Computed example of a mutant assay.
Amino acid sequence: MIVLCAPDALPEGQSRGFTCNGTRLLAVRRHGHVHVYENRCPHRGVALEWQPDAFLDDSGSLIRCATHGALFLIESGDCVAGPCAGEALRALPCREDDQGIWVDPA
């Protein structure tokens, strides 16, 4: 496992982008839980954000692909609207402790 950041570097309701071993990732904290996904839309393989760390829709309740408008559930990565409906973001195993937010990039 590799540390992404300190726990307080990802506040509640926020998202952040990272690069880990050459793979672009995004992390979101919602309801106290951290979710980590590969930063890659299943529709065309493009990065999801429109500017650094901007992965969420206006309500902060869904991950949004800035290129195609696809919307993904934060908790599962499932696409619920857009051109890749029925597909999902690739989740990565993660955990959090006092030392940081850890991810398994494999």
Rank of each mutant, 00 (worst) to 15 (best):
M1W: 14
V3R: 10
L4Q: 12
A6G: 11
A6M: 15
A6H: 13
P7C: 00
D8Y: 07
D8Q: 07
A9H: 09
A9E: 13
L10E: 02
P11C: 01
P11V: 02
E12V: 11
E12K: 11
Q14M: 10
S15G: 05
S15R: 06
G17C: 11
G17I: 05
F18H: 12
T19E: 11
C20V: 04
C20W: 04
C20L: 02
N21I: 15
G22Q: 10
T23L: 06
L25M: 10
L26P: 07
L26H: 12
L26T: 07
A27E: 05
V28S: 11
V28E: 13
R29C: 06
R29I: 09
R29K: 04
H31N: 06
H33K: 03
H33Y: 09
H33I: 07
V34S: 00
V34W: 05
H35R: 06
H35W: 04
N39I: 03
N39M: 06
N39C: 09
C41D: 01
P42K: 03
P42D: 03
P42H: 07
P42R: 01
H43T: 02
G45P: 02
V46D: 08
V46I: 05
A47C: 11
E49V: 00
E49W: 00
E49G: 04
E49Y: 00
W50K: 05
W50R: 03
Q51R: 11
P52D: 14
D53Q: 14
D53G: 14
A54G: 04
A54K: 07
F55H: 03
L56V: 02
D57Y: 01
D58K: 06
S59I: 15
S59H: 14
S59R: 13
G60K: 02
I63A: 01
I63Q: 04
R64D: 02
C65Y: 01
C65T: 00
T67D: 09
T67C: 06
H68D: 02
G69L: 08
A70W: 08
L71D: 15
L71V: 15
F72C: 02
L73D: 14
I74F: 12
E75Y: 08
E75T: 14
G77E: 09
D78I: 15
C79Y: 10
V80I: 05
A81G: 04
A81T: 10
P83Y: 03
A85E: 10
E87F: 06
A88D: 03
A88S: 07
L89K: 06
L89C: 03
R90N: 03
A91Q: 03
L92W: 00
L92F: 00
L92Y: 04
P93D: 03
P93C: 09
C94Y: 09
C94L: 15
R95P: 09
R95E: 09
R95V: 13
R95S: 13
E96D: 10
Q99N: 04
G100I: 14
G100Q: 08
G100W: 08
W102K: 04
V103D: 05
V103E: 03
D104E: 12
P105C: 01
A106C: 15
